[in-house]
Amino acid sequence: MTPILRTIDLEKTYHKGSIDIPVLRGVTLDVNEGEFVTVAGRSGSGKSTLLNLIGGLDTATAGRIVVRGADLSEMDRRDLALHRRHTVGMIFQSFNLIASRTALENVTLALAFGEHPRSDRKSRAAEILSRVGLADRIDHTPGELSGGEAQRVAIARALANSPDILLADEPTGNLDSRTSEEIAALLRSLNDEERVTVIMVTHDEAMADAVSDRVLRLLDGRFVEEQTGGGAP
């Protein structure tokens, strides 16, 4: 089985003045289609950077990322935008919703970027929002939503353009434990039912263990451990 995602000796070094700060030091990872993979690690271990590289928001210093046979290092900025638009969907710890737009409008904006036909954007957005359990909150702005509801909107937005891979960067970091469990369960059910590949980054190892097929531990920019998660079939 060919993996849907493959990173090969991925390196990322940030430059602060004359000082080089290596964040990723040769990360190699294969993720199969439909897998739920969690990257766990302490703050500063490089896990968010890895996700940003896979998401095409940032570019690697060395190494390659191949998604469905396409090499991100060979893509120009326009291709990377298309990659973010159609191949991956991202969710963040701080939700990153547009505060002035309602839940529905946040999702339709993603559909507009995806050049989804204008006529059924609203129905499509409403459909995804009800899939994540927000059918009755679609006309509320992020300020009127709880953290868990906001993250559900973010998940709906990430799924809007039917991506192959959902990239979740500390999706439960800003949520209480009960809501965290709900969000983790939602991601797991999306992975099970919609067959969307999920790559999650978290420092909550218990949750990681509970929902993932596979948990990889990142320390100082390298994978140090891999184990099968509790969510594995």
Partner: peptide, 16 residues
């Protein structure tokens, strides 16, 4: 700035 970042993250190109 943040909104621009969001638009890029959900697939907005530089041209957009």
């Amino acid at each position: 700035t943040r909104e621009i970042g969001i638009m890029k993250a959900i697939g907005g190109s530089e041209t957009d």
